[in-house]
Write a protein that binds this DNA or RNA. Structure first.
Length: 223
DNA sequence: TATTGATCATAT
DNA sequence: ATATGATCAATA
């Protein structure tokens, strides 16, 4: 049950088999406690699903399902069935953005194939009682790819030319750059406008909820 | 109240 | 320290 799935079909079947279970129930199966305080439980849904579906070791710059090249993302849904939060994609290496391009980017690789597992997240429902939803396998279509690329290229360019401090969460139609740090004191190297080093807050790429909503709508329609 | 900016936990 | 897993909470 918790071994690495050997095919896409096996992964999808497993994911769909746990649909309907609560985080508390699934957490018990994989020996992960669901904390009472939500603020102390930000990543637990993802951790429970990783373990339950047989993702290979977490905390590595690799796909969750290495053999299949598939990334796992849990996605919190509000009472209307729409994504409640943005989806974190990856942290950004600010100092090497100038040396990469879209096809070689971490965002491109991470999003090439994703298993989305929706999780009920109506704020009135206690975390342990929230149910896992129907999972979908996603690969960006041409249009989604184009929109991601457009945003990525603009944001990457800003970082590369030293304008990282001018980036806000307002930029990007589907992909945005926002802080991603353990606390407010962390700093990362980034190029400044003269190409010298400046220290700034660590950041990551995130998918906007409106984008993941559209993706889920497309996948549901297909199935 | 939707969205941006800040933060929490665990693993290596 | 920095990667993973994200959601909280202040702001507009």
């Amino acid at each position: 049950m918790f071994s690495e799935p050997q095919s896409e079909q096996e992964l999808l079947t497993r994911a769909r088999d746990v649909a309907g279970l609560t985080l508390g129930e699934l957490g018990a199966r994989v020996e992960i406690e669901v904390p009472d305080e939500a603020v102390r439980a930000k990543g637990v849904a993802g951790q429970i699903l990783e373990k339950a579906l047989g993702a290979t070791a977490a905390s590595r710059a690799e796909p969750d399902f290495l053999k299949l090249g598939i990334e796992l993302k849990t996605i919190p849904l509000d009472s209307a069935g729409k994504p409640k939060e943005s989806t974190f994609v990856c942290s950004i290496s600010l100092s090497t953005m100038a040396d990469t391009d879209w096809e070689r980017s971490t965002v491109f690789k991470k999003l090439s194939k994703v298993l989305f597992v929706p999780v009920e997240a109506a704020s009135k429902t206690p975390l342990r009682d929230r149910r896992v939803g129907r999972a979908y396998l996603w690969a960006p279509n041409a249009e989604e790819q184009r929109r991601l690329r457009t945003d990525w290229e603009r944001l990457a360019e800003m970082i590369a030319v030293g304008d990282v401090e001018r980036i806000t969460g307002h930029l990007g139609e589907v992909l945005q750059v926002r802080p991603k740090a353990p606390h407010g004191r962390s700093r990362r190297r980034a190029p400044d406008e003269e190409g010298a080093v400046q220290w700034t807050m660590p950041r990551g790429f995130y998918l906007r909820p409106s984008f993941t909503a559209a993706v889920l709508a497309r996948l549901r329609a297909l199935d």
